[in-house]
């Protein structure tokens, strides 16, 4: 059992303990730019009575929700094609290629979109050839979404693909043979069978988008700021770490509720067979 210890100790000491400390910190005070241990609710009251906090909260929630829907929808045809139309070799290569960007400097990848999205960037250059534009894409919500897609799309396609690949092909063929159209087969046979995997993919997309600060900051222009940007601003410019802790805990609780609801929904028994 000694093999259990290294992981247990490290994660308790440097993962659980810092997270617990964050909760304690949210009740501390800041006096003369120094943090003083205490048990005061002042940080919670200050943050929760500020309009800008709730603006940021609902804006972040909305961005993450849109990102989840858009990414899931855009990923699905790709995952579907790879799962049902591609040969095993092509499928393996596709997985191989999609896993690479997930582990490859997201910061630089997101930033590179500036080359495409800028007012004189590649896209507007192309549009002007056809007599359109220029369109403002950088520092808009569109820019933020391109960034979120950069972050989430490869992962969501991979997760959807894994769940679609496990769908029993016999059931799909049975549906076709019984005269069920292609589109109807997708929505009434394939999607329900792959539901758990699809929901898990969407949940990861929500978690990643909700916590990300690179896309809303560098591609979305940070107007208004998201919760992650709020944490950075509060920590880096002011010495208000306790208030940043309030934002962080609120985010964690929100993510836990979302993840729990998603899992409950994913495993819920279908009412109609």
């Amino acid at each position: 059992m000694s093999f259990a210890l290294p992981g247990l100790l490290w994660q308790l000491l440097f993962f659980v303990f810092p997270m617990m400390f964050l909760i304690a910190l949210s009740f501390w005070l800041v006096k003369n730019y120094r943090m003083v241990p205490g048990f005061e609710s002042v940080n919670w009251v200050k943050m929760y009575t500020r309009g800008y906090f709730w603006d940021a909260y609902f804006y972040t929630l909305m961005l993450a929700a849109i990102s989840t829907v858009v990414t899931s929808i855009l990923a699905f045809p790709c995952a579907y094609a790879l799962a049902f139309k591609a040969s095993p070799t092509v499928r393996r290569w596709a997985m191989f290629l999609l896993i690479i960007p997930f582990f490859t400097s997201y910061l630089v990848r997101a930033y590179s979109w500036q080359i495409f999205l800028g007012n004189e960037g590649i896209f507007n250059g192309l549009f002007s050839v056809f007599g359109f534009g220029p369109y403002k894409m950088l520092h808009t919500m569109f820019g933020t979404m391109v960034g979120y897609l950069t972050l989430c799309l490869p992962l969501v396609v991979v997760l959807q693909l894994l769940s679609l690949a496990n769908v029993d092909k016999n059931l799909v063929e049975a549906a076709w043979n019984l005269g069920c159209g292609r589109v109807r087969t997708i929505f009434q046979v394939i999607v329900p069978l792959a539901k758990v995997g699809l929901v898990v993919a969407a949940t990861f997309c929500f978690i990643l988008s909700f916590g990300d600060f690179v896309s809303p900051y560098y591609l979305g222009g940070s107007k208004p700021p998201t919760l992650s940007i709020l944490i950075i601003d509060t920590t880096k410019s002011g010495q208000q770490w306790p208030r940043a802790a309030v934002v962080a805990i609120t985010m964690i609780v929100t993510l836990m509720i979302v993840a729990f609801s998603a899992v409950t929904y994913a495993y819920a028994r279908r009412t109609r067979q």
């Binding site: 910190l25 916590g211 600060f213 993510l255």
Partner: peptide, 24 residues
């Protein structure tokens, strides 16, 4: 619980992890 502890960290937003580590 043990496996949860071993696998969960990447799901915590990096900014929050950063703040918690910095604070501690």
């Amino acid at each position: 619980f043990y496996l949860g502890l071993a696998l969960l960290p990447p799901t915590v937003p990096l900014v929050i992890m950063g703040l918690a580590m910095l604070a501690l």
